[in-house]
Design a protein around this nucleic acid. Sequence first.
DNA 1: TGCTTATGTAAGTGGTTACTTACATAATAA
DNA 2: TTATTATGTAAGTAACCACTTACATAAGCA
Lengths: 195, 195
Amino acid sequence: MHDQTTRDRILESALHLFSTKGYIGATTKEIAKKAGLAEVTLFRHFRSKEKLFETVLNSYTFLPDLKGLLPQVSDKPYEESLLIIAERFYDKLSERKEMIQLVQAEVQRYPEKLLKTYQKFIYELWHTLALYLNELQKKRIITKLDPEIGARAFLGMCFAYFNAQELMLNKTPDKKTKDETLKGFVQIFVRGTTA
Amino acid sequence: MHDQTTRDRILESALHLFSTKGYIGATTKEIAKKAGLAEVTLFRHFRSKEKLFETVLNSYTFLPDLKGLLPQVSDKPYEESLLIIAERFYDKLSERKEMIQLVQAEVQRYPEKLLKTYQKFIYELWHTLALYLNELQKKRIITKLDPEIGARAFLGMCFAYFNAQELMLNKTPDKKTKDETLKGFVQIFVRGTTA
DNA sequence: TGCTTATGTAAGTGGTTACTTACATAATAA
DNA sequence: TTATTATGTAAGTAACCACTTACATAAGCA
């Protein structure tokens, strides 16, 4: 078959251009050029631009990355756990920045393709955190509150911070500012939820 | 000059199509058709597609809308104030949903045009809330915390909820669910910040 | 050596797009 | 009535795009 590294280079280049210029705005010519290849090579690896787009979406899912995040902290104290979750969550978002930009920009246009992935992503994460909060509630560590609303609130703070900084303003905050902000979020949330 | 209502119809149609299909994806033909006009009429009102885009951006700023939101609540008790702010904020975002979708999707592509507007929007709102929190801090109503981080946390929860529901899942939650969620957010935040 | 495989260059095709030009029409104002 | 204004229909243009076809080349393998 075709060279794997060539294929990967096309996918990487495509992800970058789709995420910055959008599906329509990124041309096959430009994608190939950025990968250092002739346009025709792109079409030898992928039947069509649409097929390439789908492959990009499937190759860069962020789902598995985040699943393992929560179980690891269940033994640690509440505040410490949340700080770890906040930091990992933010870092994963940063790492997958291009993919998230792509999804946010194109959901309206290709809901069939994108919505399922994204819904799963939001839902799984949110729900897993809700389960964790529910556990803590049973142990009387946190106060009586809807755990799903709590999960929403916590992840929402972190996501909105990421969104504003990295997607909108396009500026990664320095580590110190980031850490302090997330710590501040955790403090408010912990204070607002402990029994 | 040209008819004002015709112009407005083009702008409205353009906003809708730009926000759902993106700048490149929305064609002048389709915009005109949706406005019930011939394509050539669009070009009689706007020199170019780009000029039309800029006019849309300037016509639908959400900035002034939100500025008046905060001063009105300064006499009310803390929790009540925050609930009002959360609800108004969410509703304004809903009302301007198309504009926000447009900005989020296109910032990467036209930062010169969009960033200034959006930066102002985030910054003003966030900063105004921070000032309000700072006031409360002086009155010893809320605890010692960075007011800007507090503002970020609070608006972040609300924005992320809006973003997930209305932009991603494209489903406006029913009033009851929405109210309860926002109330939950406010409770966590108030509990987490009161002295 | 000769065959296969992955790439390249070059040229082209049919469709679409932003935008233009020319001319017609209906309403309104002088 | 006549001139103006806002629209319409129709046709066209130059550029670009996704995708194709034909042919060349260089490397590795049989």
